[in-house]
C-alpha cells in the first residue's frame, strides 16, 4: 500500500519548486501537481506552504512571475526560473547531494 502523501521534509520545498520550474513555466497549482507527480505521490504540497515559499523566492529574485491564461482559459499567475534561480537550483542540488552522501556514510558504518 502506497504511503499517504505528506508535505516535503523541512527545508526541501525550495529545491522541489526550483526543479519543477526548470522544466518550464507553471502556475501555482501546476507546481503542486508537478511535485506530486515527480515524486510519484510521495509529496503533497499544500497551498499554505506553497504560496509563502513562492512569494519569498520571487522576492529573493529566484523566480519571476506574470499573469497569463491557463490551458483551460483561466487567468493564472505563472512562475518561471530566472538566471539567479537557475544558479540557486544548482547550488541547492549540490548541497542536497552532499547531505545525502554524508548521511549514507553514517548509516552505512553502523
Amino acid at each position: 500500500m502506497a504511503p499517504d502523501p505528506a508535505g516535503p521534509p523541512q527545508g526541501t520545498l525550495d529545491l522541489l519548486i526550483l526543479k519543477s520550474l526548470s522544466l518550464g513555466e507553471l502556475h501555482g497549482l501546476g507546481i503542486a501537481k508537478r511535485v506530486e507527480q515527480l515524486s510519484r505521490g510521495a509529496f503533497h504540497v499544500r497551498p499554505g506552504s506553497l504560496f509563502p515559499a513562492l512569494y519569498r523566492m520571487e522576492e529573493s529574485g529566484w523566480l519571476a512571475s506574470s499573469w497569463g491564461d491557463s490551458v483551460n482559459n483561466r487567468r493564472a499567475k505563472f512562475y518561471r526560473l530566472t538566471a539567479l534561480g537557475q544558479r540557486q537550483l544548482e547550488a541547492e542540488r549540490e548541497e542536497w547531494g552532499r547531505v545525502t552522501r554524508a548521511i549514507a556514510l553514517v548509516l552505512g558504518t553502523t
Binding site: P47, N72, R75, A76, K77
Partner: peptide
C-alpha cells in the same frame, strides 16, 4: 494575492 488564491481554487475545482 487574493486573485491568485481565487484562481488556484477555481482551477482545482475544475
Amino acid at each position: 494575492m487574493d486573485a491568485e488564491l481565487e484562481s488556484f481554487v477555481q482551477m482545482l475545482a475544475d
